[in-house]
Nucleic acid binder design. Structure first.
Length: 551
RNA sequence: GCGCCCGUAGCUCAGUUGGAUAGAGCAUCAGCCUUCUAAGCUGAGGGUCCCAGGUUCGAAUCCUGGCGGGCGCACCA
């Protein structure tokens, strides 16, 4: 980003050279932004890490490090040794001015990186069975998967968003039987939802649709024929519904991958053959097994049952083989916590096939609990009563729903407070962040200026207050945050950053007048407002959220 | 019983890959609108980082053992 490397890189490289000279090659030191403003703009623990090799107290080593440090002029204005041996750096004014120009020049690209260039990644998420509506858990998976995909794109990866359709198992038979029963009920006949079937009211609506499509005589077909047709229509109608929900939710997939297509193309047999050739299978008790225990799973797993049918495991291996064959360097599966026990066996299978260890990773999404009015909203798929994703985002709005799903680490359970998500006050973090953006836009609206017309040139000396500086410094941290979030696949780092930034932006807005100040200050603050607007918009956009100009 | 995740302020949660005096929001209390959006800002109080050991210059963070909560442990998907 920009024409010259970020200051932190310049410093890091210089420190690395010193580390090499002082016998600290490969030592695990860091250069980071201290929490405390009094600890400088950047700080390193290098001296403490080198202390042992140097056989000297850390503060003494710090002096040697500083003496050996060879920095170009105009980078650092002050250096200090602090605490047990930290070296704190204050950046030169030049650097702050440069960062304003960098932000303005990069615009909507500010925060992007290229370290993932050339790496093809498949992110598979949601992958709901085509047997019912998406519920809130799918929503969390959708927001997370899309967020991870976006983070990877922002760091230069080539990303494919993919949805796996489980359209081949017994659940489809159950859906067909349940739908047929609803069709019969719709024409006034007695019919029971079968054991293990789907009781939700949505199938009543589907039955009405089926009758509308196929004509009223459809219900009079012989059961076998009617059920066969329901087997086609049921999943189709559910898929259509899911796609509508996902589209409204702002999530688009490039690939919808059908499980049935694996069977149809002979992927099952070819995978079986592949495993057999590698000596990974054996027969026992009339079943065919995969020797997964030799690859990290705690037991061997059945591929083909005694009755000749396949377990779910086999098509799942075939599916991941297919992803590998399609040329992906990495695949990331977003799974609900209730499937986490399944990870070791898939990992074992892919390991057995000789795929790289980092080829396959799973982002586990923990449970979502929905709370309204202080009460948990219970859901039960069995009784057919549950909170659908659509119910949720129609009540709180798409932006709020997506933001809430992303604002916590995915691997901890999450309480979705519906009342909070709906509130239009500072308590609501989505609102708070979007409001900060709207305020920045408001300055330009009142000034009658096109924010894009600002070059980014400003005299940093014309940003005199602590609030000016704090906001500017926060803006410069954005690229580091996106990089870290992408590496860790943790979108919640972005929401956390945005909230911190919004707090500084609101405080700045309140305390620092822009329009009507001296020309110098007005120009500098307009530039700062522009930069803030860019970073807020980029952060929100990255997460798939809107950045309104007025609210 | 075994495995995975979680345990941090009254509540919801962060915590920069082992760093400096553990942070934020909400809630509580006290203030702030002639000003680009008060849909906001400022300040105060609030902690056994679940417990006990260990590793080291240094542990909320890593290791071991407990305790508590959640989710899994199929020839189901």
């Amino acid at each position: 980003m920009g024409r010259r490397p970020p200051v932190s890189d310049v410093l890091r490289e210089a420190l690395a050279r010193v580390a090499g000279q002082l016998g600290g090659d490969g030592a695990a030191w860091v250069l980071e932004r201290p929490r405390e403003a009094g600890h400088g703009d950047l700080a390193t623990n290098l001296a403490m890490v080198l202390a042992k090799a140097q056989k000297a107290p850390p503060r003494k080593v710090a002096e040697r490090v500083i003496a050996a440090l060879d920095l170009p002029p105009g980078v650092v204005s002050r250096t200090e040794i602090a605490g047990p041996g930290f070296i704190n750096f204050w950046l030169a004014e030049d650097q702050l001015a440069a960062s304003l120009r960098t932000i303005a020049a990069a615009g909507s690209d500010y925060g992007r990186h290229n370290f993932g260039a050339g790496v093809k990644v498949n992110v598979e998420f949601v992958s709901a069975n085509p047997t019912g509506p998406l519920h809130v858990g799918h929503g969390r998976g959708a927001a997370l998967g899309d967020g991870i995909a976006a983070l990877l794109e922002w760091s230069g990866h080539t990303v494919t968003r993919e949805f796996y359709i489980n359209d081949a198992g017994v659940q489809i038979d159950r859906l067909a039987l349940s739908l047929w029963a609803r069709v019969q009920q719709a024409v006034g006949r007695q019919a029971e939802i079968p054991e293990g079937g789907y009781h939700g009211d949505y199938l009543k609506e589907d039955a009405a649709q089926v009758l509308a499509r196929e004509g009223p005589a459809f219900a009079d077909l012989p059961a076998e024929q009617g059920i066969a047709r329901c087997r086609e229509l049921g999943p189709l109608l559910q898929r259509e519904q899911q796609d509508r929900d996902l589209a409204t939710f702002g999530v688009r997939f490039r690939v919808f991958f059908s499980e049935q297509s694996i069977y149809d193309r002979g992927g099952i047999d070819s995978t079986l053959r592949l495993l057999h050739e590698r000596g990974l299978t054996f027969e026992e008790d009339g079943a065919l097994w995969f020797r997964t225990s030799a690859y990290g799973d705690d037991q061997d797993r059945v591929l083909r049952k005694r009755d000749g049918s396949y377990t779910y495991f086999l098509p799942d291996i075939a599916y991941h083989v297919d992803k590998h064959d399609r040329g992906f360097d990495r695949v990331i599966d977003v799974w609900g916590a209730d499937h986490h026990g399944y990870i070791p066996r898939v990992r074992a299978a892919l390991r057995a096939l000789g795929y790289p260890e980092d080829f396959f990773t799973v982002a586990v999404v923990q449970l979502v609990k929905v709370v309204r009015g202080g009460e948990e909203v219970k859901m039960s798929k069995r009784s057919g009563e549950f909170v659908t994703l659509r119910d949720l985002f129609e009540e709180v709005g798409v932006d709020a729903a997506r933001y809430f799903f992303l604002m916590r680490r995915s691997d901890s359970q999450f309480v979705f407070d519906v009342d909070l998500a709906k509130s239009q006050t500072e308590e609501n973090p989505v609102f708070y962040v979007q409001m900060a953006h709207a305020r920045m836009s408001g300055i330009f609206r009142v000034a009658g200026l096109d924010p894009a017309s600002l070059s980014g040139d400003a005299r940093v000396e014309a940003l005199p207050t602590e609030d000016d500086r704090a906001l500017l410094k926060k803006l410069t941290a954005f690229p580091e945050v996106t990089a870290r979030a992408a590496r860790e696949q943790e979108p919640h780092r972005i929401t956390g950053y945005l909230e911190e930034l919004a707090r500084l932006a609101h405080a700045w807005y309140h305390k620092c007048r822009v329009l009507g100040e001296t020309p110098d200050i007005e120009q500098a603050r307009l530039t700062l407002a522009r930069a803030s607007q860019i970073v807020l918009a980029n952060g929100l956009g990255l997460l798939g959220l809107s950045a309104p100009d007025r609210m």
